[in-house]
Design a protein around this nucleic acid. Structure first.
Lengths: 122, 122
DNA sequence: CAGCATCCTGCGTGATACTG
DNA sequence: CAGTATCACGCAGGATGCTG
């Protein structure tokens, strides 16, 4: 056992590392409906949750590259001018969608409403 | 609509924020089998994935407090001396376990083995 | 045993400006 | 349009030492 595969000893840590960052999961989620262009992704990824400021290109670029490197998304560059690039989920990325869905579901259920008032001793 | 609940607009972001940090999910996972003492959690949370260094008390303490504040775990302090404290999942925390399980499963399946050699164009 | 106090460092995130 | 370059900063995370 050369290096004791970290993913085996702790898949959660590996997962967290892979989707670290504030936008990776959101990007994956956005891409679940089909390919999207750089600008579209950017417009969809508004900060503040209410939708005001946009993510900076530097950050988006990094996230996109990281996701590509992870094999979750694929980059498709059309010709040259004017620049047009599409990103889409790979098979691996698609397999992640249900997981994200589970996360979203849990979040909606447990983070949307406080309701946690009667669990003092539970 | 005072502040446009972030969890509704983006549960994923809220989730990520709640379990931000390298150990929170692992702690939740460790606690799924029942209450555990501070030291037990600490011993179980080894760094490097192979199991060498331990998490520092400062960090563990912070994670534990954050999880408690989030309502995912509960702290039970037995008497005074010698100090004995147990942590256990709350109802909310337990509801998170399946999600973590899904994450683990995905991680084991997709991060354990490379296998991503034939997905150049997929 | 179960923490807290202090210091330090790298990195993730953001602002701003520029380019093919 | 789809990025890259540079600068700056806050904060997670770690090292050490001390305490009730």
């Amino acid at each position: 056992m050369a290096k004791a595969n970290p993913a085996r000893s702790c898949p959660v840590a590996a997962f967290q590392k892979m989707i670290s960052g504030k936008y990776k999961l959101r990007i994956v989620w956005d891409l679940k409906d089909g390919p999207r262009r750089y600008g579209e992704i950017r417009s969809g990824l508004l900060r503040g949750a209410n939708g005001s400021a946009e993510i900076t290109p530097r950050v988006l670029s990094r996230e996109l590259k990281a996701l590509t490197a992870s094999g979750l998304i694929a980059r498709k560059d059309f010709g040259e001018v004017p620049p047009k690039v599409e990103y889409r989920l790979t098979r691996k990325g698609k397999s992640l969608v249900p997981v994200v869905a589970a996360i979203r579901e849990w979040g909606e259920r447990n983070l949307g409403e406080p309701a946690a008032l009667a669990d003092a001793a539970e």
